[in-house]
Design a protein around this nucleic acid. Structure first.
Lengths: 81, 81
DNA sequence: ATGCATTTGTTCGTATGTATG
DNA sequence: GCATACATACGAACAAATGCA
């Protein structure tokens, strides 16, 4: 799964979908930190702002929690609803 | 030489230029540590992040090396090319 | 040897400016 | 005018390494 800049879908939604998938399939495990926003932005070829926007969505879903100086921590591998 | 926030040039490039100048003129000497990133940020009126960005550039040029807990060590007073 | 301050390294949070549609 | 997207810049919290008392 990759980000398509020419798709009509928002970049931050595409990033959020990719991260949800990786959480659901166990690529990123509960209780551990996932790659940093900077790393993700480089890997996915999008701006750091778009990654942070995506992370905000996951945080609103209680899928992750974020800690300054620590990283993005996965809360659960079970997606909501 | 001072940082100009309204100049079109990037702050971190301006900081790098200032530090290169100080190395070249012997203000900071080879084999010794220069002021810490925090001190430089206060002196120059820029964020610590911008100083660290500038230091990354100097490190890429092998002008300095950095050591956690020690500081920023000048490697040579001769600027590349 | 133990603790503490200093320092760089990493990370997220926020604001701002520019460009685009 | 407005929202998206990107990049720079600044700030704060945390981690790890170093040196010293």
């Amino acid at each position: 799964m990759a980000v398509d800049h020419d798709s009509g879908d928002y970049v931050y939604e595409q990033v959020a979908a990719i991260l949800r998938e990786r959480i659901a399939d166990g690529t990123y495990r509960a209780g551990r930190v996932m790659p940093s926003a900077r790393t993700l932005s480089q890997e996915l070829g999008v701006s750091i702002g778009s990654v942070k926007h995506a992370i905000e969505l996951l945080r609103a879903e209680d899928l992750v929690e974020t800690r300054i100086g620590r990283g993005i921590v996965v809360r659960s591998n079970v997606l909501p609803r």
